[in-house]
């Protein structure tokens, strides 16, 4: 299959690559760039384990082609911490037991980053509604909601 050249900036680093047009962004990130922090939990865009930021908005990277990311700025879970300092949302997930097996966590954190950008001071109901596209099977969501609310407070929302 013919390959298409793309240029994607991921976590501040620019990558040039040639990919098959059908290559999913999540496979490009995980397999071509070795950024395995982004997870695949389903094949129908339900679970949200693969959420990354693209040009400032969240996308499900299993439902986005790598060629669609050509020229884009992508942030994955590996790029959330600032020079080794945990992002306040990461810190809040840790403090509030917002994860158990950790598989949904990258997607939950990426979604929460956008959620708090849009609404720095959300109610619990708004956080729950904002996580509608992310599934977790371990926590019952309660401590995830608690984590996001704690992060909002810490970030001065």
């Amino acid at each position: 299959m013919a390959k298409i050249p793309i240029q994607v900036t991921v976590n501040g680093q620019t990558h040039q690559a040639e990919v098959e047009p059908r290559t999913l962004l999540v496979h490009f990130l995980r397999e071509d760039l070795g950024l395995t922090g982004t997870k695949i939990g389903c094949d129908t865009s339900q679970c949200g384990a693969c959420v990354v930021m693209m040009n400032g908005s969240t996308v499900k990277s299993c439902t986005c082609l790598a060629v669609q990311a050509d020229g884009a700025e992508v942030t994955t879970i590996e790029g959330v911490a600032d020079q080794g300092n945990l992002h306040p949302i990461q810190e809040a997930f840790w403090d509030n037991h917002g994860l158990q097996c950790g598989y949904c966590t990258a997607g939950m954190i990426m979604t929460s980053v956008e959620l708090l950008q849009r609404n720095p001071n959300p109610t619990a109901e708004q956080v729950r509604a904002g996580l509608e596209g992310n599934l977790c099977r371990c926590t019952g969501y309660q401590n995830i909601v608690k984590s996001v609310l704690a992060a909002a407070e810490r970030m001065g929302g």
């Binding site: 397999e31 950024l35 922090g37 997870k39 945990l86 840790w94 950790g102 598989y103």
Partner: peptide, 21 residues
């Protein structure tokens, strides 16, 4: 106390089976 396994999980550094290459 907060969990000791969490730092690798919240940063994307944990290795699950499909991450093994």
């Amino acid at each position: 106390i907060r969990r000791r396994e969490d730092p690798r999980l919240i940063t994307g550094q944990a290795t699950y089976t499909d991450d093994v290459n």
